[in-house]
Deep mutational scan, measured.
Amino acid sequence: NRRVIAMPSVRKWAREKGVDIRLVQGTGKNGRVLKEDIDAFLAG
């Protein structure tokens, strides 16, 4: 159960899209999950 680094707005975006943010690979600094990462995860 790893800790995910993400801005609150990104966490909210993931929740709205029904995405478990822990499954998303972050591409930002220090592995931070970005809004673009959520979109890419949804795109496959």
Rank of each mutant, 00 (worst) to 15 (best):
A43Y: 11
L23C: 06
K12D: 08
M7R: 15
R2I: 13
V33M: 03
D39M: 10
R3D: 12
D39Y: 07
E16I: 12
V10Q: 02
G31D: 05
I38E: 00
V24W: 01
R32S: 10
R15Y: 13
A43N: 12
V4Q: 06
V24K: 00
L42P: 05
M7A: 15
G31F: 06
P8Y: 09
N30R: 12
R3L: 13
V19C: 06
A14H: 01
R32Y: 07
A43R: 14
I5S: 07
A43C: 12
D37P: 00
L42H: 08
I21D: 00
D37F: 01
Q25E: 12
R2W: 06
K29V: 13
A40I: 09
R15W: 13
G44N: 15
A6P: 03
R22C: 04
V24S: 00
Q25I: 14
N30E: 09
A14V: 02
G18S: 06
D20F: 03
L42C: 07
L23I: 10
L34M: 09
K12I: 09
E36P: 08
T27M: 04
V33I: 15
V24Q: 00
G26T: 03
A14K: 01
N1W: 06
K29F: 12
A6L: 04
W13Q: 07
N30L: 11
K29A: 13
M7K: 15
L23Q: 13
N30Q: 10
K29S: 09
I21A: 01
G44L: 15
F41Q: 05
D39N: 11
R15Q: 12
E16F: 11
S9H: 13
F41N: 03
V4I: 11
M7I: 10
G28E: 02
L23N: 10
L34A: 04
F41D: 03
L23E: 11
A6E: 03
G26Q: 02
A43Q: 14
R11W: 14
L23P: 01
G31M: 05
R22L: 09
N30D: 13
M7N: 15
K29H: 13
G44I: 14
G28Y: 01
L42K: 07
W13G: 04
W13V: 08
S9R: 09
I38D: 00
G28R: 02
G31C: 07
P8E: 09
N1L: 09
D20Y: 04
L42I: 14
G26W: 02
R22D: 06
L34I: 11
R11H: 09
G44K: 15
I38G: 00
K17P: 00
P8C: 11
R15G: 06
G18K: 09
N30C: 13
D39G: 05
V19H: 01
R3Y: 10
P8S: 10
G26K: 01
I38H: 00
R32P: 00
I21K: 00
R3W: 09
A43K: 14
D37N: 06
K29P: 14
I21T: 02
G18H: 09
A14G: 03
A43W: 10
F41G: 03
R32K: 08
G26A: 07
V33Y: 01
V19Q: 01
W13M: 11
Q25W: 13
G31E: 05
N1Y: 08
T27D: 01
L23W: 09
A43T: 12
V33E: 00
R22H: 10
G31H: 07
A43E: 13
R2M: 10
G28K: 01
V33Q: 02
A14L: 03
F41I: 07
A6R: 03
D39R: 08
D20I: 04
R22V: 07
V24N: 00
R15V: 14
D39K: 08
A40V: 10
P8V: 08
K35T: 05
K35E: 04
K35Y: 06
K35M: 11
G31N: 08
D37M: 02
N30I: 05
A14R: 00
I38R: 00
L23S: 09
G18W: 05
V19P: 00
Q25N: 14
K12H: 08
I21R: 00
V4H: 05
G26M: 01
M7D: 15
D37T: 01
G26R: 02
E16M: 13
A40C: 11
V19F: 03
P8Q: 10
I5F: 10
A6N: 03
T27H: 06
K35H: 08
F41S: 04
V24G: 00
R11L: 09
N1H: 14
G26F: 02
A40P: 02
V19W: 02
S9L: 08
D37W: 03
T27I: 02
S9T: 08
V24Y: 00
F41E: 04
E16V: 12
R32Q: 13
G28W: 01
R15C: 12
W13S: 05
R22T: 12
I21Y: 04
E36Y: 10
V33H: 02
A40D: 12
M7W: 15
R22W: 10
R22S: 11
R2L: 13
D20A: 05
R11K: 10
R2T: 13
G28N: 01
R11F: 11
K12V: 07
R2F: 09
G18T: 04
W13D: 05
F41A: 07
W13T: 06
R15A: 12
R11D: 04
E36V: 12
K17V: 12
G31W: 04
Q25S: 12
K29D: 10
I5L: 13
E16P: 01
D20M: 04
A40F: 11
R11Y: 10
V19R: 00
V24R: 00
I38P: 00
R32V: 07
I38Y: 00
A40W: 09
R3V: 15
S9Y: 11
R2H: 14
G18D: 07
V33F: 01
D37I: 03
R22N: 13
R32L: 09
R3G: 12
A6H: 04
D20R: 04
G26C: 02
R11P: 03
G18A: 06
V19I: 10
A14Y: 03
A43G: 11
I5T: 09
V24T: 02
I5M: 08
L34C: 08
K29W: 11
D39T: 09
M7H: 15
D39S: 08
P8K: 14
K35P: 04
V24D: 00
L42R: 07
L34E: 08
D37V: 02
T27G: 04
V10R: 01
G44E: 15
R15L: 13
R3N: 12
E36S: 14
P8I: 09
K17R: 12
R3P: 13
G44T: 15
L42Y: 08
N30Y: 13
P8W: 09
S9G: 10
D37Q: 01
I21N: 00
A40Q: 12
W13C: 07
S9V: 08
A14E: 01
E36K: 15
G18Y: 06
T27R: 06
I38W: 02
G18L: 06
K35C: 06
G31S: 06
R2P: 11
T27V: 02
I21G: 00
N30S: 10
V4T: 07
I21S: 01
V33K: 03
G28C: 03
D20T: 03
V10Y: 01
K29Q: 12
A6C: 06
E16R: 11
D20K: 04
W13N: 05
S9Q: 10
E36T: 14
T27P: 00
G26E: 01
L23R: 12
E36L: 11
G18I: 03
G28Q: 01
V33N: 01
S9W: 12
L34K: 09
N30G: 15
R15I: 14
V33D: 00
I21H: 01
A14N: 01
K17E: 04
V4R: 05
S9D: 13
A40L: 12
G31L: 04
K35V: 07
K29T: 11
N30P: 01
R2D: 13
D37H: 03
V33A: 02
R32N: 06
W13P: 03
S9N: 10
V10P: 01
D20L: 04
R15E: 12
A43L: 14
R2G: 14
I5W: 08
D39V: 10
E16D: 13
K35Q: 07
F41P: 02
Q25P: 14
N1C: 15
W13L: 14
R11I: 11
K35W: 06
K12M: 08
N1A: 11
P8D: 08
A43F: 11
D20H: 04
F41Y: 15
L34W: 04
D39I: 09
E16C: 11
R3F: 11
L42A: 10
G44V: 15
Q25T: 14
G28M: 01
D39W: 06
V33S: 00
L34F: 07
I5N: 11
N30K: 12
D37K: 02
S9M: 09
G31T: 03
V4S: 05
V19G: 00
I38L: 05
N1P: 14
V19Y: 01
L23M: 14
M7Y: 15
V10H: 01
Q25K: 15
A43P: 06
R15N: 11
D20Q: 05
Q25F: 13
K12G: 05
L23H: 11
Q25H: 14
K29C: 09
G26H: 03
I21F: 04
D37A: 02
R3K: 15
G44Q: 15
L23G: 07
